[in-house]
Lab assay of single mutants.
Amino acid sequence: SEFSSRSGYGEYVQQTLQPGMRVRMLDDYEEISAGDEGEFRQSNNGIPPVQVFWQSTGRTYWVHWHMLEILGP
């Protein structure tokens, strides 16, 4: 990996993601499973900070930056 740390990767995702971009989950996290795909909606200063609309659940759920792989527009 070109990223030395999880936080470095998270910063990359945070700087790159734009609303509407497709993402894939890298880790299991509460209701969301690794491999689930969705659409980035928004972020804020909460914890976790990233709101994604997940195809698997049909609704939005908040996750962490480093848990997401960017699939593209």
Rank of each mutant, 00 (worst) to 15 (best):
Q51P: 05
V23Q: 02
Q42N: 13
A34E: 06
Y12H: 14
W62L: 11
S1A: 11
V23R: 00
G10M: 10
L17W: 00
R41M: 14
G8N: 15
Q51L: 04
H66E: 06
M25K: 04
W62C: 09
F40Y: 07
S5Q: 02
N44W: 15
L71T: 13
E37K: 00
F3P: 08
Q51W: 03
A34D: 00
M25F: 01
W62Q: 15
G38L: 06
P49W: 06
R22K: 10
E2A: 07
R22M: 09
N45Y: 06
Q42C: 15
E11A: 12
L71D: 07
L26P: 01
I32L: 15
Q14K: 15
Y9A: 07
E37H: 08
T16F: 13
Q15A: 12
V52K: 05
L68T: 05
P49M: 01
E31V: 12
Y29M: 08
G46D: 07
I70Y: 03
H64Y: 10
V13G: 04
V50Q: 08
S5C: 09
S7V: 06
V52E: 07
W54A: 05
E30S: 03
Q42Y: 05
I32M: 08
R6N: 11
S56F: 10
H64C: 06
S43A: 12
A34R: 13
G35Y: 00
N45H: 13
T16N: 00
G72C: 08
S7F: 04
Y61R: 14
E37F: 09
F40C: 02
V23F: 01
G38V: 08
V52A: 03
Q42V: 05
G10E: 07
E31Q: 14
F53E: 08
E31R: 09
M21Q: 14
Q55R: 12
A34N: 09
P49N: 09
V23K: 12
W54S: 01
H66L: 03
Y61V: 14
P48K: 04
F40W: 01
Q15K: 05
H66R: 05
R59D: 13
T60N: 15
F40K: 11
P19H: 10
P49R: 00
G8E: 15
R24N: 02
H66Y: 09
S56V: 10
F53K: 09
N44P: 01
R41E: 02
Y29T: 03
S4L: 07
V63E: 00
Y29G: 04
I32H: 00
H64W: 04
W65P: 14
R24W: 02
F3E: 10
I32S: 06
G20Q: 02
V63K: 07
P48R: 14
E11R: 14
G10L: 03
E11S: 10
P49A: 05
G46N: 15
Q15T: 11
I32G: 03
S7A: 07
Q51S: 07
D27K: 14
I47W: 09
V13P: 01
G46Y: 05
D36L: 01
E31A: 10
G10F: 02
H64R: 00
G8P: 13
R22D: 07
F3M: 09
E69T: 06
Y29I: 07
S1T: 10
V13Y: 01
